[in-house]
Simulated scan of single mutants.
Amino acid sequence: MKKILVLFFALNCILLQAQKTTKIGYIDMDYILTKVPEYAEAKNQLEQKASAWKQEIETKKNEINKLKQSLSTDKVLLTKELISEKEEEIKNLEKDLLDYQQKRFGPQGDLILQKSALIKPIQDQIFNIVQDIAVKRNYDFIFDKSSDLTMLFTAERFDISDFVLKELARAGKKVELSKKQQKVQDQKDIKEFDDKENPEAVKKEKEKEEKNQATKEERERKIQERKDLIAAKKKEAEEKRAAIIKEREENRQKLIEEQKAKKEALKNKKP
């Protein structure tokens, strides 16, 4: 019934907001708590206590069962008065055991009370952070997925649990930021929110960046090809020039040798 009322209230609020854009988000309190180190440590200590209490209960049960077994075995040897006394003793022990179980694990028992005391400070802190996010990001509704409200479908982009965890971590570090650092951090937070809430826009932006990168790489490839072509032509021209110079030098050397040979031949012909 409670779930139906909460759901009805939520739907009614949404219909009232139908004339304007309604912004909705949700958190998963169970998920958040599992990521908080202080809660995990305290929960572990509480579970150890609960385990010890269960062991005490089991010990008491075994003692009562032994008394019952002993009474059943010795009943034929006992008087009615002794039997009544032992049965009354067992009855009182069973009542004490039931009271102890209620004390430890009942609706108002130690386990519930200590768990509530453990969770409440963290829940209060989370509540304050959620309130702050709601104001900054203009949310109309923020629900708790792990509460009595049954959420049949939840789009992941509306989940702000990780943003709440980040704020919890910052609060735990107690780091004072300068105005400039705070501004940078706020801008970063805004972008993270926008990216999460608008996956299609992020996808388009990524595709645009990839296209720009491909265009840039293609341009750089063409520039490099042009540079390589120029370098190849320059190398070819240098090789031709070197070949021409070499050929000229060889021809010059050949001509010198021919002239030298002619001189020697003329010299040898003289009487």
Rank of each mutant, 00 (worst) to 15 (best):
S146Q: 00
R104K: 12
F127L: 01
L82R: 15
E247W: 03
G109E: 00
Q259F: 02
I256F: 09
I64W: 03
L149I: 00
V36P: 01
K260C: 06
K68G: 11
N62G: 09
E85S: 04
K68A: 08
V184G: 07
P199W: 00
K254Y: 04
D74E: 13
K270T: 09
E41K: 15
K191Y: 04
K246Y: 01
S51K: 15
F193V: 00
L7D: 12
K49R: 14
Y31D: 10
P271V: 02
K267D: 11
E87Q: 00
I27H: 02
Q187D: 09
E264Y: 13
N198D: 14
K183Y: 05
N44Q: 13
E88Y: 15
K174W: 04
M151R: 02
L168N: 00
R157Q: 07
E249Q: 15
L266Y: 04
I4W: 09
I64N: 03
L149D: 01
N12M: 11
A42E: 13
K136F: 05
K120W: 07
I24E: 14
M29A: 07
N128D: 10
D144N: 14
I4E: 12
V76I: 13
D124H: 03
A243K: 15
K227C: 03
N138Q: 15
K240H: 08
L97V: 03
F8D: 13
A50R: 12
R157V: 00
K262G: 06
E156C: 00
I129R: 02
K86H: 05
Q187C: 05
E218L: 12
Q45V: 15
N44C: 06
Q108I: 01
Q181K: 10
K234N: 14
E89Q: 15
Y39G: 03
E264V: 14
T34W: 00
L255I: 12
Q123I: 13
R252H: 10
E209R: 15
V6S: 07
E217G: 07
L11M: 14
N212E: 13
D124A: 10
K188G: 08
F143I: 01
D99W: 03
K222N: 06
Q182Y: 04
A18V: 02
T34I: 09
T150G: 03
E239G: 02
T21S: 11
K120H: 07
S51V: 01
Q181A: 10
L7C: 05
K235Q: 12
S147C: 02
Q131M: 12
S70L: 07
E257A: 14
Q181V: 06
E236D: 08
D124W: 06
I32W: 01
D195N: 11
L33E: 06
R219H: 04
K183M: 11
L15I: 05
E87Y: 01
L71T: 06
I190G: 01
E249A: 12
P107A: 08
E156N: 11
K191T: 09
A261T: 14
I244V: 13
R104N: 10
P107L: 06
Q101I: 10
Q69F: 05
K173S: 09
I83Y: 01
L152E: 04
F153P: 01
K222L: 08
K270S: 09
E236N: 06
R248S: 02
L82P: 13
K196P: 01
L229P: 05
A52V: 08
K174I: 02
E238R: 11
A261P: 09
N128E: 13
L15R: 08
K206W: 03
L149P: 08
D74F: 03
V164E: 09
